[in-house]
Design a protein around this nucleic acid. Structure first.
Lengths: 216, 216, 216, 216
DNA sequence: TATGAATGAGAATTCATTCAT
DNA sequence: TATGAATGAATTCTCATTCAT
């Protein structure tokens, strides 16, 4: 049957889309707050102010909904990364911008970390089923590779650095601190989430990465 | 009731201890595999080959059992850390040893990362109720502080480094890679857990930390 | 509204008829496969490649749809029975033809048996509501009565046989074997649906009925 | 762990057994009344006056419960069949007794027919998983074979009769009438379940089978 | 100390049916 | 006539927890 594109049909389509997006956002918040296991379909429906049945209508089951949320999360971060234009900057500045971006993204999107945790608890099988996940990442690693190569040629950055390793390291420096802020605050007996603490962490991270990358 | 110290009673006590430890180990494995939300009391009893009711007898409920597991995990890692004797080494070597230890500990105790994730998902309230958690950490940070201070004095390490930040950074470099190995492998399209990959990661981590710490 | 008989309206009517028949056929298959309780309105719509709402438009609800399917099934078998022309044959041949027809009809219309089962599970209330059901049967029983009477008079068939009982017996001999073929095959450890088995069954059935009916 | 056989433990075991049997009986009635698809776990628990959870504790899920009910039904009928002692009778009398027994058993155990219908609707997969089903049947068919053989030798019964076919025929004559009594009563416009009707049916069945089997 | 039986509160999922257009 | 979106009421099944001994 041909897709009806009359104005009326379009509005219905838009409603359908809107509903799906509402569900997706509600699910993202719920999964972020409680993890995959702790999330409740009832609460997601409530958050979305939509009938629970509709979730199943659009997303089949909890697992598939989680996968959809995860894919959306990746799409979101990739979209932001694509706005960085790292190649417009001098290599050391590009790295600094990437560190800052990573830190700020995690800070503003704590749900991303929780989703990642849940996904890994389940051995990333939600990505395995998703063909899009891989494509979504490569751009930044490629860009980073170009930045590193240019820095090496110019002498502004040390050579022999694997962009994947570097990317993982930058992420790890931010992620561990933020993801485990509660535990670490308890253990070290100091609140790691005060503005001052957070600013210090960003400085430290930048120091570590650039301390490593800048030539002696 | 006065504590009975007859041989028979003692043996019974030893049985009790053994049961508790069996439960704790079973629970640790279960929580590690499924997270706090996904863990099943039934399965824990099955893993322990003990009656479910006994778990409640010793640990009251699932939350308290998780807390007990968490505390045990901290005790275990602290015990290992205490064997490091970082002060016997030259500061750069002490740092290198700490990096290696951290990496290997996470590698051999993947359950530690999962437990940490669960704890943080629940905002570390399992630590808040535990008086022992804080004490359990300080030793290493204090030791690291001493190492850094000595390195600064000797000129073998840069000055102005916060030992807490450094500790968190070392942990983060290992943790993010290992905890998210599944997702990252999927995203980058390469298996990050082959022996070669793992060895490269440890080299990279050491390079980053020492590249940052060694004076220019 | 007066019945519109313009060509356009007629075509629409034919469409409507076609849709109803499509739904009826889809529903028959679904009910046959899963029974009344197990049938799914969704699947019926899918089988019919028509919108689910349309089913309700034409048939009101699931129960009424089932009743419609049942009535159609009776109409179908009666239509076939009416082609038998049993009165054109010698009484023993007429009986033999009826046995063969019954066997073949059930064999070719297994859905008829499942529908009958469902109907009886629900105490035939779907027939109670149907005024047409009774009329639909009588012809054959009347014919059979005539055949028996003529056979008795001619001496070719034993007398004193109730045509209803005979009709039920012929049906029962075929029905039980075919309807329970799965269970019986499992129980007796031999496949009752091979061509050979089926042919043997028809012979046996004929032997039983004619062995009973033919005068000593 | 060794099975505790102290009186106390035995009582507990007996309680467990009693609960299972109560559930089984409740489930049998429910499945008989509504079929597998229409049966409700809630209602079964209510009928058994036991907690719904307990059904799952003992029988895992609805399907397995149905299978257990089915096996029990077979055990029950086989137990009765074993009391027939057909070999103590003259062959024609043995056959007559079998016809009467079959008729009366179905009459008194209408649930057996409904269970059989459900099982066949699901293509007997509940039997496929049951190793015991086949064994449970053979005795009677073997006995019937012996009866037929003796009758042939004595000249009291015709030869060349397959005992499986005969067994199926006897069952079919009773089953179709009783299982479809509602529909048939509606169709023929006469109540087939009055005492008189039932008695006539048994006579007819016996006439058919013996009319077929007795030598000319 | 140890255990099998039992339970109530929920949780995911299903289903027939209706709405709005 | 036809349809995609939406819903409320079940329904199966799960889970931490308690009982009784």
């Amino acid at each position: 049957m041909a897709r009806d594109t009359s104005p009326v049909a379009e509005e219905r389509l838009r409603d359908a889309d809107r509903s799906q997006n509402t569900i997706l956002a509600a699910a993202r918040d719920e999964f972020a707050e409680y993890g995959l296991g702790g999330a409740r379909m009832d609460r997601i429906a409530e958050r979305a102010a939509l009938n629970k049945r509709l979730i199943y209508y659009y997303f089949e089951d909890k697992e598939k909904l989680f996968q959809a949320v995860l894919e959306q999360a990746y799409r979101d971060i990739r979209e932001q990364e694509n706005k960085l234009h790292l190649l417009d900057l001098a290599p050391p500045d590009a790295v600094r911008r990437l560190v800052e971006f990573t830190w700020n993204y995690y800070l503003q999107h704590p749900e991303f970390m929780t989703l990642l945790n849940s996904a890994n608890l389940h051995k990333a099988r939600h990505l395995a089923g998703s063909t899009r996940a891989r494509e979504l990442n490569s751009p930044l690693v490629d860009t980073l590779a170009a930045v590193l190569e240019r820095g090496r040629r110019e002498g502004s950055l040390r050579g022999g650095v694997d962009p994947v390793q570097l990317y993982v390291s930058i992420a790890g420096l931010a992620y561990f601190y933020l993801s485990n802020a509660h535990t670490l605050s308890a253990i070290f007996g100091r609140d790691l989430m005060t503005p001052k603490s957070r600013s210090e962490r960003l400085s430290h991270m930048t120091d570590v990465i650039l301390g490593y990358l800048l030539p002696a």
